[in-house]
Amino acid sequence: MSAVEISTVFTVFAVSLGSLFFLAGTLGLLRLPDTLTRLHALTKADNLGLGLIVLGLLPQVSSPLGWIGLIAVWLLALLAGATVGQLLAGALRPSDGTPPDRGGGSA
């Protein structure tokens, strides 16, 4: 296999894997019992999913500026995701600090 083919296979693999994590995050949105736990699924799975997609796209970009650009997109998305996740979580926090006691399947 030539270098081009290897990089293409790598891209397809990493991007598909990344999409799988987005899918897992969405599934978490549907299956998890309350908004706080759903936020976990979204922030974590999307971070890894987007990271993998960016990683997969790196070999397709030839210039170093392009690499840094892709990574900057990931970092800015992380900052946004982390901030919004915390803000939503803070807004949803029960006032007495007790855990929302429902749907906790035993591990």
């Binding site: 995050g25 299956r31 998890l32 309350d34 706080l36 736990t37 699924a41 906790g104 399947g105």
Partner: peptide, 11 residues
């Protein structure tokens, strides 16, 4: 999330 038993213990 993929586990059918949904093993979480939130708190």
């Amino acid at each position: 999330v993929l586990d059918p038993r949904l093993p979480i213990r939130p708190g």
